[in-house]
Simulated assay, not measured.
Amino acid sequence: MITATRYRAMAEINRQAKLSTAIARAESDISTGKRIQVASDDPIAAARVSVIRAAQADQAVWARNVQTAKSIAGQVDTALSNVSDIFNRVKELTLAGASESVSSSDRAAMVQELNSLRTALTNISTSTTPTGQSLFPTDAPLLVSTSATQRLPATAQRSTVFDGIAYAHGTASLDWVIGSAVDAISTDDVAARRTAADTALSDIDKAVSHVTTQHAAQGLRAAQLDSAAESLESASIQLSEERSTLEDTDVASTVMSLNAKTLSLQAAQMAFAKVNRNTLFDLLS
């Protein structure tokens, strides 16, 4: 009889110990916000969380790549806007310089401004990013990884933007057409100057059209990068939600379970204490 009672007491003590462990674990789950603390807590969910964690690490790298590429694309867009402004001004000066009423001193000032615009164009073509990379690289632009399967450029090759324009006389650069405008305005003979200016104006229009096309192409690159950023953000949200479902503590249900276990432990302790107040003679009777 005493042995049986001893075993029952030990069993009750073990049951209460398990309840205490479960309560401590529930409290830990609530305080940390994580229900999986070691893989053995839920091996299947832990394995999936590991896969998600790796995917999130990859996405963090791709997201940084996209942000860097978007920054470069924004700088390129600004640069091309400046090139457009340059050629709009070149056209204004060429039209004004072709007039027979313009004085030689005015034409000299126009030539000086055109040369300044030419220098500005060269500076834009050779400009760099804050990290020292060419904004318009001489080689093919670096393709930026935005996913496991997608690589996108942030800019265009320098020769694509500034060279290879088809003019009336043949193929030449953007710089060349400003030089032809300078030559036209520098011509003293009015008739010859007007003829040269007309040819230069035609070429300037072709240059403006080329810059507009390049600007539009840059807009498409920027749109692709924006789309990649949106896709990464969407995927990141989905992964975070799935990971949270697998890994995070369901606070409401855990609190309910904690309360139930706490009440059970308290009741068991009270009952155990009451039973064990009996004397040996009480047990033998």
Rank of each mutant, 00 (worst) to 15 (best):
Leu80Thr: 07
Ser81Gln: 14
Asn82Lys: 10
Asn82Val: 00
Asn82Pro: 00
Val83Glu: 06
Val83Trp: 08
Val83Met: 06
Val83Ile: 14
Ser84Met: 07
Ser84His: 07
Ile86Gly: 05
Ile86Phe: 09
Phe87Met: 04
Phe87Ala: 00
Asn88Glu: 09
Asn88Ala: 10
Arg89Leu: 01
Val90Gly: 02
Lys91Leu: 06
Leu93Asn: 03
Thr94Asn: 02
Ala96Trp: 11
Gly97Asn: 00
Gly97Ala: 04
Gly97Phe: 02
Ala98Asn: 13
Ala98Met: 15
Ala98Pro: 05
Ala98Val: 08
Glu100Gly: 15
Glu100Cys: 00
Glu100Pro: 09
Ser101Gly: 11
Ser101Gln: 13
Val102Gln: 07
Ser103Thr: 15
Ser103Lys: 10
Ser104Thr: 14
Ser104Lys: 13
Asp106Leu: 01
Asp106Phe: 04
Asp106Gln: 12
Asp106Pro: 01
Ala109Ser: 14
Ala109Val: 05
Ala109Pro: 05
Ala109Cys: 04
Met110Trp: 08
Val111Cys: 01
Val111Phe: 01
Val111Asp: 02
Gln112Val: 09
Gln112Thr: 15
Glu113Asn: 08
Glu113Phe: 06
Glu113Pro: 08
Leu114Val: 01
Leu114Tyr: 03
Asn115Met: 09
Asn115Thr: 12
Leu117Lys: 03
Leu117Phe: 02
Arg118Val: 04
Arg118Ala: 13
Thr119Glu: 15
Thr119Trp: 01
Thr119His: 09
Ala120Thr: 13
Ala120Ile: 00
Ala120Gln: 15
Ala120Gly: 08
Thr122Pro: 00
Thr122Cys: 00
Thr122Trp: 00
Ile124Asp: 06
Ser125Gly: 14
Thr126His: 11
Ser127Leu: 10
Ser127Ile: 09
Thr128Trp: 02
Thr128Glu: 13
Thr128Arg: 14
Thr128Ile: 06
Thr128Phe: 03
Thr129Ala: 08
Thr129Phe: 06
Thr129Asn: 08
Pro130Met: 05
Pro130Tyr: 05
Pro130Thr: 07
Thr131His: 07
Gly132Leu: 07
Gly132Arg: 09
Gly132Pro: 04
Ser134Ala: 14
Ser134Trp: 02
Leu135Thr: 10
Pro137Ser: 11
Thr138Ala: 13
Thr138Asn: 13
Asp139Asn: 15
Asp139Arg: 12
Ala140Cys: 00
Ala140Gln: 12
Ala140Gly: 00
Leu142Met: 13
Leu143Glu: 10
Val144Met: 14
Val144Trp: 13
Thr146Gly: 02
Thr146Ile: 08
Thr146Lys: 01
Ser147Asp: 10
Ala148Leu: 08
Thr149Ala: 14
Thr149Ser: 15
Gln150Ser: 13
Arg151Gln: 15
Arg151Ile: 04
Arg151Met: 12
Arg151Gly: 04
Leu152Lys: 07
Leu152His: 08
Leu152Gln: 05
Leu152Phe: 09
Pro153Lys: 02
Ala156Ile: 00
Ala156Pro: 00
Gln157Thr: 09
Gln157Val: 08
